[in-house]
């Protein structure tokens, strides 16, 4: 392994101080960062260990919930309030990785985990995300994991998180603390940036900025589903996933928030799809139109063409179940 310095920060201020400079990286659970370092995909000069920071804990925040950045995926999934009021989040977490990994993986680290694109992982291959300007080897290569929406000429990698998909449907906000010590809240929907010409830039986080918490508002819908389709029954990333938070208003859909995983460089959401559904009576025709809208710009790259019909089926099925009240 390339040599690096290691600093264990005692508090947020110290972490922010130590985290300054290009070569620094925060380490939380390490389940993603360490793998990438061993493969030389990431070569930080300094690791700032944030595990001692007081960023654990799940607390009430007005009507909502404040989840500390260091809360592990296991603890978050098992939390009573989360299981009761935000079941889509609990389900999404439990659909991810394995028990051992979830015990280590943190909320902040999960949001910032990197793509599983085979070519990003292999330093002998060109990759614009890992080595800006070197080219994209995924195009024309094996694309089973890759995006059908939101990609660019430079990058078609997907964001692999399940948790973030559920949080997006729950309209989460990310609390960030900058090097100036100021805290701000960024809606998760604005947190990730499209790959465009700079796929190495994945979020609005500035250099050295720390995620301190994720805030969930009171859920606007009580019918919550997380559907994850994958290549084996467990321990596989989503080919397509769909988080749905639906509230019924009599016979009509009063609230609809959908988010998707496995199909785009970021947890994917299309506000127009939510708008199309809201206020309407559920019907297969409506759901089909929602799918048409979601996938209007979808583009396959050969190995992932199947994700277009698959996303369509999953969307329609999820909406049927949510509006029928199959969701728990």
């Amino acid at each position: 392994m390339k040599r690096f310095d290691y600093a264990r920060a005692a508090d947020v201020a110290e972490a922010l101080r130590e985290g300054q400079g290009d070569g620094a990286a925060f380490i939380a659970g390490g389940t993603n960062l360490l793998d990438l370092m061993k493969l030389r995909v990431l070569t930080p000069d300094r690791l700032v260990d944030i595990n001692r920071l007081a960023l654990g804990g799940i607390e009430r925040d007005g009507d909502g919930l404040r989840i500390g950045a260091l809360v592990t995926n296991s603890d978050l999934a098992a939390d009573e309030t989360v299981r009761r009021d935000y079941p889509v989040l609990s389900r999404a977490l439990l659909a991810g990785a394995s028990g051992q990994l979830r015990n280590k993986a943190t909320t902040g680290g999960n949001l910032l985990q990197r793509t599983r694109c085979y070519y990003f992982y292999d330093i002998a291959m060109p990759c614009n995300k890992r080595d800006p300007g070197s080219g994209c080897q995924a195009r024309g290569g094996v694309t089973r994991l890759h995006a059908i929406l939101g990609g660019s000429d430079k990058c078609i990698a997907t964001h692999p998180s399940d948790m973030a998909v559920a949080m997006l449907a729950l309209k989460a906000e990310v609390e960030v603390e900058g090097t100036d010590g100021a805290r701000r809240r960024v809606p998760l929907d604005d947190f990730y940036v499209p790959p465009g010409d700079t796929p190495q830039v994945e979020t609005v986080l500035g250099a050295g900025e720390l995620i301190t918490a994720v805030i969930l508002p009171l859920p606007a819908g009580d019918r919550q589903i997380y559907a994850k389709v994958r290549d084996r029954a467990s321990y596989a990333f989503a080919l397509v996933s769909c988080a749905a938070v639906i509230g019924m208003d009599g016979d009509r859909i009063g609230h609809a928030a959908l988010a998707f995983g496995g199909i785009a460089p970021r947890p994917w959401r299309n506000a127009e799809v939510d708008g199309l559904l809201t206020g309407q009576a559920p019907s297969d025709d409506l759901f089909r139109r929602a799918a048409d809208l979601l996938l209007a710009d979808a583009k396959g790259h050969g190995g992932n063409d199947f994700k277009i019909p698959l996303a369509r089926r999953v969307l329609i099925d999820t909406l049927r179940k949510a509006t029928r009240g199959d969701a728990a």
């Binding site: 070519y119 024309g140 290569g141 994991l145 084996r232 467990s234 321990y235």
Partner: peptide
Amino acid sequence: DPRDGHIVNRDLAEYHLPVNA
């Protein structure tokens, strides 16, 4: 890989052996 023949799924996360489930 269709261009150079190399095995792209070179680890147990992406080469899918059956797991308990």
